[in-house]
């Protein structure tokens, strides 16, 4: 068993600063960064004279998974694809709520994110607060469901790649043949329980 003080190596950074897609037609901004998230900058980015509310959601890194202590967390991504997906989500939210959603920003952090620091900041400005809460919730669910970013939780025994929802993507080709095998066998090994070697 590895000692508690063992931390994963800092993963290679694919870029420095912030990689982003800004769409001026829809007033949406999405970005990825390895740096600490600047919440105030995200708030200022969505300010609008037409807005009566700015809703802020900040996701932070939890120190346990169902009670099991986590020493640190790490996020990795496929930058061009995750930015496209983030931008598609932001633009579709704007299109669906064009009359009262004025501006939207989503920033996700990558690399090692120490416990209790921020991993995602969603800010948006709306005419009134009620629709703001609703859109922020919807936005987070869409991001968690679709965006090609992966979280690895490090326990004392090593790292585990988490999945927000198992088996949603992809097709279990082997499972088709294994239909009668019942559960357990076949392709349905949940990735979240796949023990990973500590590399």
């Amino acid at each position: 068993m590895a000692s508690v003080t063992e931390y994963p190596p800092e993963p290679t950074r694919a870029f420095t600063g912030i990689k982003s897609i800004e769409d001026t037609a829809t007033n949406t901004f999405v970005g990825l960064t390895y740096d600490k998230l600047d919440i105030n900058a995200s708030i200022d980015r969505v300010r609008s004279p037409k807005a009566g509310a700015i809703v802020v959601f900040v996701g932070t890194t939890r120190d346990n998974f169902e009670g099991k202590p986590i020493t640190t967390l790490e996020y990795t991504t496929y930058p061009p694809l995750s930015l496209l997906t983030l931008s598609t989500i932001a633009k579709s939210l704007k299109t669906d709520n064009s009359h009262y959603l004025h501006s939207l920003s989503i920033i996700h952090r990558l690399g090692i994110v120490p416990i209790s620091e921020d991993s995602i900041v969603i800010t948006l400005s709306t005419s009134h607060r009620a629709e703001g809460w609703k859109i922020a919730e919807q936005c987070l669910e869409m991001v968690k469901d679709k965006v090609e970013i992966w979280k690895r939780e490090w326990f004392v025994e090593g790292g585990v790649w988490r999945a927000n929802r198992d088996g949603r993507q992809g097709v279990l080709e082997e499972e088709e043949e294994d239909d009668d095998d019942g559960e357990g066998e076949g392709g349905g090994v949940p990735v979240e329980y796949l023990e990973q070697e500590d590399r």
Partner: peptide
Amino acid sequence: IIPPVSSG
């Protein structure tokens, strides 16, 4: 190769 995602 895109494994199940886990952002947030």
